[in-house]
Each structure stands twice: as C-alpha cells, then as structure tokens.
Design a protein around this nucleic acid. Structure first.
Lengths: 245, 245
DNA sequence: AACCGCTGGTTACACTTTGATACAAATCTT
DNA sequence: AAGATTTGTATCAAAGTGTAACCAGCGGTT
C-alpha cells in the first residue's frame, strides 16, 4: 500500500503494440501510476475527453493519424506533457527536429526503467511551472537571487535592493528570462524588443542595450555576467529561472 | 448544537464597560459567534496579533487611545470590518463624518438584536465583495495602506490623515485604481479623465496631473512612487488593490 | 609570430520623451 | 465682485534611446 494513492499521476499510453501496452500497464502501475492504454489517435482523444491525465506516452507509428500529428494538435491546445516513443531505427534527433513539441523522446526498444526516469523528469519539470501558464502571464521571475517583478517592473538584487531599469532594459531582461538557456540572435531580440517608441531599430542598438543591462547588474556588485555572448550567434541567458505567478 | 461550528465567525469586542462586555459576550455567543472581549486599544492590538477575527465591535470612548484613532489605524492596514459604538448623545452622523472608515455605526444604548442585524449585514457585505462587484460600484479603494472613498472623494493616507484631492487628481487616481496593473496610454487616460465641462484638454496636461497626483502621495512622506512611467507607452499603477463596497 | 578582418563592448552625442515648476486663464466660493 | 482654487500651457531640466565612432579581442592566414 503505497502512499499518496489518491494523488497518483494518471498516465495515458497510446500505442498499438499489445506487448508494449501490457508491459507499460503492468510496470507503471507497479510504480504507483494509474495507467490507461489506448491503441490509436481516435481513442486517445476519447480518453482525454473522458478523464484527466497528467502525461501522455505517445508512439510515433500508429494506425490512422500518426504520433507527430497528434502531438502537434495536442500541444496546440494544451500543455499536457508528452513523451514520444520512436520506432527502432528512426533517428531520434530528426524526429525531435520536426517541431512536434514533445517534452521528451525515447527510442525503441527501451528499458522500462529508462522510461520511468523520463516520466518522473518530465512531470517534475511540468510541475515547476504553474499550470497552463503562458510566459507573458508570469508575475515574477527569479534567477540566482535576483527577482524581476513584471507588474511593477522592478528588479530586486540578491540583497533586496531595488535596481531601477529603463524600459528597454526591462524588456530585454524579460525576454531573456522568458527564453532561458536559449541562444537568441539579434534579429529575434530586435523583433521582441521593439516597443512603440522604437520605430526602425537598426544596426547595433541591441548591443548597446545589452551593454547597459549588464552594467546595471554589474553596478549592484555582481560581476559574473549572466548574459553571455555567443560569438557570431547572439546572446544567451545562462541561469536557471523560476517562474511565479 | 448549531451548524457550521467549525467556521463560526470570530468577533472581537473592544469596550471598557464590563456590563456591555458581559452582555455581548453572552448574547453573541448564544447566536453562534465566538466572542472575545478586551477593554482598550492595547489589548485589541494584542488580540489581533494573536488570532484571526472576522469583525471588530469598537467602542468610541476608550481609556487610552480612543476608538476613532484605533479604527483609522486598523483600516489603514487591513480590511477587517469594524462596527463602531457611539456613546449616548453623540451625533452618529458627525462621527461618521470623521472618516474613520468604519463599516457601520450604532448609537448607545442599543438593542442587542439591532447589533446582531448589523453584524450579519456587515459580514455579508464583506463576504460578497470580491464577486459581483463592478468597479463603478466600489465605494472605497484600498491600496498599500491608502484608502480612497469614492463617495466623499477623500483620500486617506496610511496614517489616517485626510489628503485633499482636486477633481482631476481624484478622477485620475480613480481611473488608475479601476485599472490596476495595466499600462494606460495618454489617449486612454485623457478620454477617461475628461470631466463633463472639460472640453478639449491638450498636449501634456495629463503629465502635469500625474505629476501633481504623485506629489500628493509623496507629500505624505510615502516615497516609492506607485504610479510608474512606461516610456513611450503611458503610465501604470502597480500595487495590489483591494476593493470594498 | 605577425598580420588582418570581423565581431562585439563601450562611450559619446544628438534627439526625444518625460518631470517639475512657473504662470496665466478659467472656475469656484463667499 | 474679490479672492482662492483648479487647470492648462510654456519652459527648462533630467532621463531614455538610437547612431556612430573608437577599441579590444578572437580567429584565421600567411
């Protein structure tokens, strides 16, 4: 009798291979999850309509509509986490590049233990985000002791000092926080950065704003530059970010 | 054995008259409330710090700090409902005009049944607030210790001091309070701000009014500007705002 | 290693937006 | 009608932003 039975995570397995179905059903159930298995996309939609699920394990190859397409549709309307199973011989990297939006990929044949690890990881990640929270709705970003309040537009240093930010500095920092650990090139940043006032931003105004932002952070006595340059590519914000609403 | 014992409302009676204390203690307890009685302001503060209360019945005349002053301080920091008992012969209207911010007034001597009715009414009002309340119906806005009474059009500082507002200042503040945490541009503000007689306000009269409003808030010694500028966009009023009718 | 082109960091400067004050016109009070 | 208050306009100071210029490294080539 494990604990927390009442709050066991509900997992939906979508695969037409009956062997896999039986395997996952048994193994995951033994691990404390509530498992439902269906064989195709139509049944998946039905299941999702009928009950709540915390995660979907989705096979790539399915009768009828394939997994990639299903995954895309799913992500378009919800943030329900998805782990995709790719058939033997498929190139996982290529699949991942198809922009399906799955949270993780696992090539067949797989070790059930490996799947379990990924399930735990994905669920943990999904929970760290308030449910269905769009980046724009985030009220507060935290990163390495700093915090940025997106309503009052104030930045608090690790010591709790209020660091005044100009409009552009604020917008820039916010963009970085919304895309942590991603390299953003100048065009992307430019696009996202442009406020009403900013008509046709040109050339290197970006660089200047990055410089100013860095200086602001530096002024508070925090040397290690959080915003790193990727030469020839753009900039990257390299620090774990917590979101809070 | 009445229902909902677990959620019985907790009432704090502040009165130095032992007869009244005994009367209310017994009568209200019999009505299903949990009652605590204290004799002066100091004891009231102590009680409030110790436990949760849903309503305060506060006598006007008290040893030490009087009821009016206590009520002001109370309202400056919370929305805890207050019913004031005014001594025999006091003019209730005059008391009400003192801007104590009490939710109701009851002249002594009173019929306990009458007090009960007011308690129920005030509690019901306090509870129904968050829902079913249109911004236009709001009688009193509270923000960071300040209160704006939309009936008397008076602004109360956190210390309970009445801050006089000109018509434009009042309208502007009201607009901000009705749209908290939203960036309002000059056109919107202009549109909403223009009074009946005010025909064609021009150019930067907005800016001047914002400046004047800020000064009003600042004059009371409250530095951190609540009204923030968003360059090229407009202004934003950012603070948690509670509504009350 | 010396050279050289290129990318990016920083500073300076011009221009725009905004803050604050002074003053005048308008409105309200008494 | 006189005086006080409020409100809009003008004006100057301060802050924000984009562009340009100058430098410092980095990488690649010879």
């Amino acid at each position: 009798m494990t604990t927390r039975m009442a709050t066991a995570d509900q997992i939906l397995v979508v695969d037409d291979d009956t062997e896999i179905q039986a395997l996952l059903q048994e193994y995951l159930a033994r691990q404390g999850y509530r498992v439902t298995t269906v064989a195709d996309g139509r049944a998946m939609e039905q299941a999702l309509a009928d009950a709540h699920y915390d995660l979907v394990v989705l096979d790539l190859m399915l009768p009828g509509e394939d997994g990639i397409s299903l995954c895309r549709r799913l992500r378009a309307r919800s943030t329900l986490p998805v782990i995709m199973l790719t058939a033997r011989g498929e190139d996982t990297d290529r699949i991942a590049g198809l922009e399906t939006g799955a949270d993780d990929y696992l090539p067949k044949p797989f070790n059930p233990r490996e799947l379990l690890a990924r399930i735990k990881s994905v669920l943990r990640r999904a929970r760290s985000l308030p449910e269905n929270l769009q980046p724009d709705d985030v009220r507060r970003f935290r990163f390495g002791g700093w915090q940025l309040d997106t309503v009052t537009r104030q930045l608090l240093s690790p010591e709790g000092v209020v660091v005044p930010l100009s409009g552009a500095e604020y917008r820039l920092l916010r963009i970085f926080l919304q895309h942590p650990n991603a390299v953003l090139n100048r065009d992307q940043l430019m696009e996202m950065l442009r406020g009403r006032e900013n008509n046709l931003p040109f050339d290197r105004s970006m660089d200047v704003q990055v410089s100013r932002l860095r200086q602001r952070l530096r002024d508070e006595g925090h040397e290690p530059t959080i915003v790193k340059t990727v030469r020839g590519e753009g900039y990257i914000f390299a620090l774990p970010v917590e979101l809070e609403n």
